[in-house]
């Protein structure tokens, strides 16, 4: 075995293991996800935030689409679909707008 092949396989395993371990910890609750879909109102209470839900869904869809395209053609780094890119931008903007609005309300 050559050292370059050895390090390639070891790093490949590392790249699979790190997301797998973190994904497992998220699924089993070892990494805290509480309050991700909630925002604090001016009184400090947690209230459900639809802006966060849509951002979560769009992000998951964007990442899944990227991985799907990459596995379809693993010779090149997958390019993001312009439609997905525009959707991501709009989603992020709406999330930031809702966050800024909440901050403005709290300041008032």
């Amino acid at each position: 075995m050559r050292p370059d092949l050895f390090i390639r396989d070891a790093t490949g395993a590392f790249l699979i293991l790190v997301p797998a371990v973190i994904g497992w910890q998220i699924l089993t609750g070892r990494i805290e996800m509480g309050g991700m879909l909630y925002e604090r109102d001016p009184a400090g209470r947690l209230v459900y935030s639809p802006a966060r839900l849509q951002l979560l869904l769009v992000s998951l869809a964007g990442a899944a689409q990227l991985l799907w395209r990459f596995t379809g053609n693993p010779d090149h780094l997958a390019s993001a679909n312009p439609l997905v890119l525009a959707g991501m931008g709009a989603s992020q903007l709406s999330y930031l707008a809702s966050k800024a609005w909440a901050a403005y309300q709290a300041k008032k």
Binding site: G12, M33, G35, S59, A78
Partner: peptide
């Protein structure tokens, strides 16, 4: 102490894009 949507998203895209890049 609340989970941050932005951090989660950054983690997701770092794994999706960074993983593909390192693989290539």
């Amino acid at each position: 102490g609340d989970a941050s949507m932005s951090r989660f998203q950054l983690l997701l895209f770092t794994f999706a894009i960074g993983g593909g890049y390192f693989y290539l």
